[in-house]
Each structure stands twice: as C-alpha cells, then as structure tokens.
Design a protein around this nucleic acid. Sequence first.
DNA 1: GTCCGTGCAAATCTTTTGCAAGGTT
DNA 2: AACCTTGCAAAAGATTTGCACGGAC
Lengths: 145, 145
Amino acid sequence: MNGGRSSRVARADGVMPGRHTPQRAAVLRAIAESTRFLSAQELHARLVADGVSIGLTTVYRSVQALARGGLLDVVHDAAGGRRYRDRPAAGHRHYVLCRHCGHSQPVDADVVEEWVDGVAGRTGFSAVEHTLELTGLCPTCTTAG
Amino acid sequence: MNGGRSSRVARADGVMPGRHTPQRAAVLRAIAESTRFLSAQELHARLVADGVSIGLTTVYRSVQALARGGLLDVVHDAAGGRRYRDRPAAGHRHYVLCRHCGHSQPVDADVVEEWVDGVAGRTGFSAVEHTLELTGLCPTCTTAG
DNA sequence: GTCCGTGCAAATCTTTTGCAAGGTT
DNA sequence: AACCTTGCAAAAGATTTGCACGGAC
C-alpha cells in the first residue's frame, strides 16, 4: 500500500522510521488490517499463524517504535498490558472498545479535547496531556446478549 | 472476597471491606495522607519506613480490595503499573497528575461525563465505561522547571 | 563495507498464588 | 471455635536486554 521507496523517514507515506524489512512491513500490515486493539503477543501470534517468520522481540520493538512515532494508538487492558491499533489519521483519536469482542470504533471527542485545553488554565498545570479510554458492548454483542 | 458483609466497625473515613486489622488501617491511612498516586510498592516502602510491619503481598491485596470497592481511584503509569489514590468523595473523579513531582489534583469533569453518556447513543455501544487520565506539570514544577 | 534489524535466551519487574501460622470476631 | 488475614517463598506473566548473525543501504 505504501510505495515507501524514499531513503528514510517517509512520514507522509505512513511508514515507520528506520529500514524497510519484511518483518516491519508485516507488522504494519497486520495492524492496519485490524479494528481491534492487539497486544504484542496477539500480533505475534497472528503473524506467525499467517506464515510470517518473525520473533516476539521484533514485534515488541516494532510496536514500540510505531507508538513512539505516533502511528499507533495505545490502550491498557484490564491486566495492565498494552494494546495497539493503527491511528486512522493525523492527530489524536479516541475509541470505544467492545469488552466482549474487542472491536474498536473511533469516536469524535472534540468536546473532550476542548475541555482538556481548558484544564490547563483552570488548574495551573501546564503541558497537559490526556488519555481517554472507553469500553462498552458493541451493537452486535449487545444484541447477541 | 469482599462483598459488603455486616461489618460492625464502620470507619469514619470509609468502609473497609472485611475485618479490621492494623495492616489495613495502616494502608488506608497512608493512602489518605497522600495527594500522589502511589504504586503498591511505594505504598509498602512508605509503610515500612514509618515503622509499620506489613508485607508487600498484603499491600497488594489491600489496594486491590479497596479499588474493587470503589474507595480508591487507579491510574496507569508510563510503565503500565498501577497507582492508587483515595477517592475524595462518592462517585467517579478525575485528576491531573504532575509528571514531575507526582502530585495529583482532582478536576471537575462533568462535561466529559455528559459527553460519555452521549457516546452510547451515538455509537450504538451499551454499558459504556470510561477512563480518563490527565498529566502535566503542576504550578510549582512549571515555575521551578 | 557499515550499520541497523532480528531473534534467541536470559534477565527484569510487577503482580498473583500456595500454604501454614496468627489474629479477629 | 470458625473463619479471615498475613506474609514468605515461589509462580506467573509481560516486556526488555545482551549478543552474534544476516540483511538493508
């Protein structure tokens, strides 16, 4: 999907920094294909199941780099582990995750963003950053009961 | 587990599930005394430093029970670990944490709560729950920094 | 050719569990 | 006396790191 042939740091291309390797391409692809937040372990299992030869360590390092670069969004699961999902567009996005099937759906959180901007002024804190995680039961799982 | 049994000793500062022991009282006291979110390990270190005889396991079990009972609020630190703080009043509260000194300050998030209520209707998800964490630099650290 | 990415094993770290002893009610 | 809580040691996991090799540029 990306024609990332440029030397490096092809941000506009949506490619991770660093060299182009089959493993990284696979991680990127696997993440882009899921609407669920996946843990590094799940991601690794998926890749291996798909016949990709990749080590768990590499998956960890990949998602780490991608998250650092802002290409992935991260949430914490109940156990405290990290789960990743590709970030649909530039900027900060929030999601509702289904507690039952794991499906995630972006939600428009402009109201929250604005509120957060105001927090700085109201509290005296500076450089305020935020994390917002929503969970629930998706329409399908709600119906299926 | 806990489950609101008939506890004869209703404490002035909150209901401690289960029996009344010196260790639990100490955990409760230590948590109530701090405006910082503390990890189980930090809490344990503090207690021991204060001369309280208590095991790390007990601290873990205590915060676990307290959080489950809604007496503590929880956040995740950068490493994914859990940190606890007493919940100032009934209901759900949110805070801004100082990334430098760890101090935390409750913020009024009614706007967000209302927005969250609307998310269910807008997305089709049901039983929506949320987690909101804010970090920044507190006034003191902003000035000093 | 150089440097970076990979991957295995081992190391770390946080949190949980088994179980016997002691405290509470 | 009955049952719960404690706490040590060990277990269970998740994530990171050391190091040597192979591929990317």
